[in-house]
Amino acid sequence: MSADLAIRLRGVVKRYGSITAVDGLDLEVPVGTCVGLLGPNGAGKSTTMRLLTAQAIADEGDLEVLGYRLPEESKQARAQLGVTPQLDNLDTTLTVEQNLLVFTHLYRIGRADRRAAIARALAMANLVGRRESRVDKLSGGMRRRLLIARALVHRPRLVLLDEPTVGLDPQVRQELWALIDALRAEGTTILMSTHYIEEAQRLADTVLIMSHGSAVAAGPPAQLVAEHAGREAVEVYGPPPRLAEVETAARTAGLRTRRTGTSVSVLGVEGADGRAPEGERRPANLEDVFVLLTGEEIA
């Protein structure tokens, strides 16, 4: 079963007027793994998510989710899919339990199993004590946890998380990571879009980096780092003219660089004694790869 795919996209194209949001995307999510879709804003991550629930219909390409062809068989796929949207769309005047109850009906859980399904989702999201609270009385972190719990009531085989921690403070983010990690440990297949690099690095078995609607690199985070950014980087701080100087020098020496706002990182310096500038040495990371591949300019 390890070779089976929960999601397979081939050459998927989605256009909105003159804008091509998804441009020939290939994506594979093996069963039982967590795949992170990493990309800057506007890279096509959310459109990809919408395509997977047939809320957007692809112009070209083949899409299969849990063995069902989209969009024709999307309803069958959706029955076994859990989705956490990027924007909170809980029913805010209802209680936590009522929100879950509604979704046990939408996901067609039989009468006999509803209570247990709600109890399980509450426990998973650590909201047992909040069962009776109205959603508009919950903190931002609790609402996010409930949003995830709501996607789990029917024990989906595949979970789509669209920017699960966007706009949350670090404590809450860690809480959610623990929840997602627990889900992963249960063997649920996860596709998660994010533009937080740390999130992808911690949670994803495989990362797919998207830029301008297509995949520019895919693989386990460590492998991507080794492949594109090398082992070590040197970070040089200084005033802008100095940074420009370092950049030019490094490029002449055949080294790759990237800006980090206040500094320049010179990459792949492990085998470049003498050619590398003086500065702080650090291990290369996924952010280096991300910026290298998706560009430094903000679109």
């Binding site: 809320q55 309803k75 959706r78 029955a79 949207p85 924007l87 979704f103 996901y107």
Partner: peptide, 10 residues
Amino acid sequence: RTYDAVLAAP
């Protein structure tokens, strides 16, 4: 954005 949630279900 209720409909996004409903249409993600079957």
